[in-house]
Design a protein around this nucleic acid. Structure first.
Lengths: 196, 196
DNA sequence: CAGAAAATTAACTTGATATTTAAAAAGTGA
DNA sequence: TCACTTTTTAAATATCAAGTTAATTTTCTG
């Protein structure tokens, strides 16, 4: 990859990062291209030079987030650790990633209203892969009889929900930093699963 | 209250109910006054006859939701039941209310961007009261030594998050109806608290 | 350095939607 | 029925933001 291509890639990623955090904060409709551009000290036109339109920007930022978190969890899953530890690690990674990226994975607008069918498929596929990783960990735990025999889908959704909601209440002014929050919350959530 | 006033109140409530469900689905910016009006078989102008502007509509619908759920939880809190049961009941009420009203309490736009300082105060006050009810139940449980001695605020936020997120994954086509979902989820969440 | 390619910009177009308004319709009490 | 009030409506206005464009500036390359 040439220097120029690297530069373009970097710029695109810069834009995506900023877009992610503004979109997560204000939602799709609430975010203006102007806003994204100006917080990068660019003009709107420049952003359009790199991305086809606003929808494209959102789509690509979703992909970026999902792909990275999928990598995160897959890496953890392969580590040689007891299942409880891997599960906890996955939760901590999830929460810290959310807080770092200031991202709502779902930005609380039904994605169905924004994306095309093909785009939705791609996103749901990734999301599904991600959820499957959690399910896999839970299943392992149940098989090893360290976890209670729960309804996997519901427990997974419950746990993901609790984690995703952290962005709503976490405050940088609070006592705990993101990692401490992540560890505390994961600790409590583990209690849903481990045998008494 | 005269008949006329009752009629007005009823109409306002109709509008609020519809607004709540559309706003919850599409978010503040994604919802048009046209849309709200036409799903009530009214014209936009009529809605403006009852509400000052869109922001006012959102504000009042938030108040309505919060006030009702505050009533719900306070009623439960006063029942003569063991604390675990009251806690579970409060969770079931929370989830079923969310699913019934199809409402995101937070519609994932920072309310700070929409409301005036005074309005925010009112809303945060109500939200705070609501959270305090949960905290109270948790505290009771800890004092009675049926609950583990947890960090109340974090556990409460975690549990509220898990519950609020249900609107993201609940599907009417799924196996369970709202009440079953609410009971199952509450059951799992209780495990965070009860002593092993 | 000169010219080409890439990147940026400001100014515009366009469409959508919140809000206003003035007139029509419906309702009400004498 | 008639005068009056309340409610509804359709049309007008105003604003704001997405997306476009053509011109300009910057960067690259030989």
């Amino acid at each position: 990859m040439s220097l120029r291509q690297k530069k373009i890639a970097k710029k695109k990623e810069d834009i995506l990062r900023t877009a992610v955090s503004i979109l997560a904060e204000k939602g799709y409709q609430g975010t203006t291209m102007e806003e994204i551009a100006s917080s990068l000290l660019m003009t709107k036109g420049s952003v359009y030079y790199y991305f086809k339109d606003k929808q494209d920007l959102l789509y690509q930022s979703q992909l970026m987030l999902l792909q990275q978190s999928l990598i995160n969890i897959k890496t953890i899953q392969q580590e040689n650790l007891p299942v409880v530890d891997r599960f906890k690690k996955a939760m901590v990674a999830h929460i810290t990633y959310l807080l770092d990226e200031k991202s709502g994975f779902e930005m609380m607008v039904k994605l169905e209203q924004i994306f095309s069918t093909e785009q939705l498929e791609e996103i749901f596929q990734l999301r599904n892969d991600y959820e499957k990783c959690f399910d896999q960990l839970i299943l392992e735990g149940i098989n090893e009889e360290v976890f209670e025999a729960v309804e996997i889908t519901i427990v997974r959704n419950t746990i993901l929900g609790a984690m995703n909601w952290v962005t709503q209440w976490y405050s940088p002014e609070g006592k705990k930093d993101p990692i401490e929050i992540a560890e505390t919350v994961s600790g409590y959530l583990t209690r849903i699963l481990v045998k008494k």
